[in-house]
């Protein structure tokens, strides 16, 4: 206790430095988290600068070069229409990320608001939210997403809505639980005595404290959201050919695997896997930073 008091400098910039130092310490302690951060940066880079990186037009067909295995010209080979798979896999990154980021963002905003209100005020808000969440959770989630897309219409926006709806319960539940355990805590009572209104307490005192667990949840769910969106397009929902998208590319390539042309399905599948893997590792790493005790 004594040495801690003597080292901690009181000024604000030092605080940022210390936080950074903690992050560096955790990453240094756990090289896997460092790999996750690097992968994450790489994926974001590919999504942003994708169009600048590709050697071929991802939609350009070339019958004379159909079904070519990976080579120096076509790093990932070509598909049955002679399109360059490397270019298609790179270009698809942005669409796949966009769908899942939009879905998770939507689910987070709505879910966190619903869950926080339910956790803080309880009563009928809690009952209504709880029923809604339970009803969503009463379906196998991927199947529900299929049903929603089938009912709303087969478009990319509806894939986003469906993915958002099946992600919503996770955020609502975490937010509700995290708000609820703090609702009657000492610091919230103290905030009440200090003259804060309910909304102010929820927004400025409780919510910032629930953010770390929510961040972990976001990171873990992002991978799951990507898998779900890709799964939907794999069974022919949402994205239409010839738009490059990982799920649909794996579906197209699946027919060629039994005849040995493995690269059609392999590279988009690998891209999908690495992306999901990066998010899951990141989630685990964030959890270590937020709460070392929950390390699994």
């Amino acid at each position: 206790m004594a040495d801690r008091q003597s080292v901690a400098p009181p000024i604000a910039p030092a605080r940022t430095r210390r936080l950074l130092g903690h992050a560096v310490y955790v990453i240094g302690d756990n090289p896997i988290t460092a790999i996750a951060f690097a992968l994450f940066a790489l994926i974001i880079g590919v999504a942003v600068f994708g169009p600048l990186l590709i050697p071929f037009d991802p939609l350009e067909t070339n019958a004379s070069r159909a079904l070519m295995p990976p080579s120096l010209d076509n790093w990932f080979g070509t598909d049955n229409l002679g399109r360059d798979l490397f270019s298609r896999v790179i270009i698809a990154t942005r669409l796949d990320l966009m769908i899942s980021v939009a879905a998770v963002a939507l689910a987070f905003v709505v879910g966190a608001a619903m869950g926080s209100a339910a956790g803080y005020w309880g009563g009928w808000i809690d009952i209504v939210t709880g029923r809604l969440i339970d009803t969503i959770m009463a379906f196998p989630l991927f199947v529900l997403a299929m049903g929603i897309v089938a009912a709303l219409g087969n478009t990319v926006e509806n894939i986003i809505y469906a993915t958002a709806i099946i992600n919503l319960p996770f955020y609502a539940r975490v937010a509700r639980a995290e708000v609820r355990i703090r609702r009657d805590s000492g610091f919230v009572q103290a905030a009440r005595l200090s003259g804060n209104s309910d909304l102010r307490i929820l927004a400025l005192h409780i919510f910032p404290n629930t953010l770390p667990p929510m961040m972990v949840q976001i990171s873990l769910n992002m991978g799951w959201a990507i898998l779900n969106a890709a799964g939907l397009s794999f069974i022919g929902l949402g994205v239409r050919p010839p738009t490059p998208e990982w799920g649909i590319m794996v579906a197209e390539g699946a027919n060629f695997v039994v005849s040995g042309e493995w690269w059609l399905a392999f590279f988009p599948g690998l891209a999908l896997m690495i992306t999901v893997f990066a998010f899951n590792l990141l989630g685990d790493g964030l959890r270590d930073i937020v709460d070392p005790r929950q390390r699994t």
Partner: peptide, 20 residues
């Protein structure tokens, strides 16, 4: 009259916002 009535809580650590 909120100003007139205040309280010191049982567990000091728990009564302080961890992010304040």
């Amino acid at each position: 009259r909120r100003t007139s009535l205040q309280m010191v809580f049982q567990d000091a650590l728990a009564s302080l916002n961890p992010r304040f």
